[in-house]
Design a protein around this nucleic acid. Structure first.
Length: 224
DNA sequence: GCGACAG
DNA sequence: ATCTTGTCGC
């Protein structure tokens, strides 16, 4: 079992003010690059649920060719940080990392139930995890943190850029007809275009792509 | 100063 | 995120 090596590690138990400073320091490290789909066999779906003062992180490793879950893991622990808009990663990453350590294999791509660059400082949870792991990552959120977009057409696959302060930070993407869209954004080592393609391609049965949908189920119910 | 605000 | 049954519509 390969050990997880973190890039640019830093403390998590810090006051909000310092957390913001850490984000500003790491944001420039985010890289956008084409995703080599030929080399992608597995996509990890990640999600964290909260129960009283406990958090439960769940990871599902989804084989994109076989279209099935090949491995999954859970980790539970005390809630380390309150929910503060813009600082979600400081609440969830400390639980996600130990969950990832319980996997036997390293996923090729990480898909988060959160924002990537569509964040006030361009450093949402998907960016944070991507930079720490130095691996391809993308965010697929159910609602907007920052930015606006034009109305979407009806068909599945319709999309509109999500713009914040004159900058395209994400994509409003309709993954199912007549269903509210999801918000895709770059986490790390992927382009917005490829992130959109991946999210749409994995949205087989539900609004959310399979990896994220299943991870949400696993963290919420405790089983698949 | 007043709203908005991933999960 | 979480608390929760039925119900309307494709």
């Amino acid at each position: 079992m390969p050990e997880i090596s973190l890039h640019h590690a830093h403390p998590w138990d810090v006051p909000p003010k310092e957390a913001v400073e850490i984000q500003r320091q790491l944001a420039p490290l985010v890289r956008e690059a084409p995703l080599d789909f030929e080399a992608v066999r597995t996509v990890a779906g990640l999600d964290v649920s909260v129960r009283d003062d406990r958090v439960r992180a769940a990871v599902v490793v989804y084989d994109v060719r076989a279209r099935e879950v090949v491995e999954h893991a859970i980790w539970e622990g005390p809630t380390p940080f309150p929910y503060v808009p813009g600082l979600l990663s400081f609440r969830e990453v400390p639980a996600i990392l130990p969950a990832l350590e319980r996997l036997r294999q390293r996923p090729d791509v990480y898909m988060l139930d959160a924002q990537g660059r569509a964040h006030p400082r361009r450093f949402g949870l998907a960016c944070h995890l991507g930079v720490l792991l130095d691996a391809p990552a993308l965010g697929v959120a159910k609602s907007i943190l920052v930015g606006r977009h034009a109305p979407l057409a009806e068909p599945k696959g319709s999309a509109q850029p999500l713009v914040h302060k004159d900058e395209t930070v994400g994509l409003a993407l309709r993954t199912r007809e007549r269903v509210k869209p999801v918000y895709v954004s770059v986490g790390h080592r992927i382009t917005l275009r490829d992130a959109g393609r991946l999210a749409l391609g994995l949205a087989e049965k539900y609004k959310l792509p399979q990896p994220t949908h299943l991870a949400h189920r696993l963290s919420y119910r405790g089983s698949l």
